[in-house]
Every structure is written in structure tokens, then in C-alpha cells.
Amino acid sequence: MSFVFGPIKQDFNEKYDQYCKLIYKIAFIHLGNKADSEEAVQEVFIKLFSKSPVFSDSEHEKAWLIRVTSNHCKNMLRSFWRKRVTQPEDMSVYFGSHKEFENAQLIINLPAKYKTIIHLFYYEGYAVKEISNIMKITESAVKMRLKRGREMLKMELEADFNE
């Protein structure tokens, strides 16, 4: 009877396949280690199955998950009780080359407010207007954060035309 009070495994598997990587990647670039990222994934799925609104479509659901993940990670960072020592995880094992490992460090080092914006633009391929809707901030704020984040990552300006 446990399924009566929780998600059905099939539903869970569908959602997990659909969104786990998205949530995990956003969590990892915010939190910078596997343990906290896994915890964030778990918390976001709990929210999805317990507190989510009725979604109009899958894009609505995805946008909600992005926002919830980003906010949850910020809350984790915000927590006064969070450990002040970052777990010295050997992140190099996740990356195929030293260059990618260095890039990952740059991404993780970005201030929190730039991370999600940069990720949505450069990885998920959202346009500025879409990011503005997802994150509930103005388009000009998105552009400014993209600009600042890009400067900090020393990113080339090739994608400007898509903004």
C-alpha cells in the first residue's frame, strides 16, 4: 500500500529519466560536489511529487524544476548550518582532460546568481526571454548576468547573436 502515499514507481522512473540529469547538473555547478548534488536531486524530487503545482505542459514542468533546483541549491548554500568546509572531493575523476577539469572549476567558482543563467543559455539552449520567464527576472537582468558570467568565464562572444 505504500504507493498510495507516495509516487508510483513507474511515474517516478519516467520523471527521473526525464529530469535527473538536468537537476543534477544544475545542482553540481552550484554545489560543486557529488554528495550535496545528490542530496539536492533527492529534495527536488520530493518537492516534485509533493508540492508541485499542476503543470500545463512539460516545458512548464521543466521550468518549475529548474527554478526549484536553483533555489534549493541557493538555500543549501544559504543555510547557516551548512558545513563551512567544502568537501575536498577529487573532481578530476569526472573529467576527461585537465582542461575540462579547469573549466569545471571556473564554472563552479562563478557566483551563484550567474550560474543558472549561464547554464540555461549555454547548455540548455534557452533564449534570454525564456530564461527571463523561467527565473522570473527581467530580460535586462538576464543579459547583464550573462555578460558578467561570460566575462568571468572568459567566454567567447560567439553566442551573442542568439540573445
Binding site: K25, F28, I29, Y94, N103, A104, I107, Y122, L153
Partner: peptide
């Protein structure tokens, strides 16, 4: 490069 890096997470 950004995509390639994040792909590996």
C-alpha cells in the same frame, strides 16, 4: 567547451 565540460557531470 562549456557543453563538453558539463556533459561530463
Amino acid at each position: 567547451e562549456y557543453k563538453k565540460t558539463v556533459d561530463q557531470i
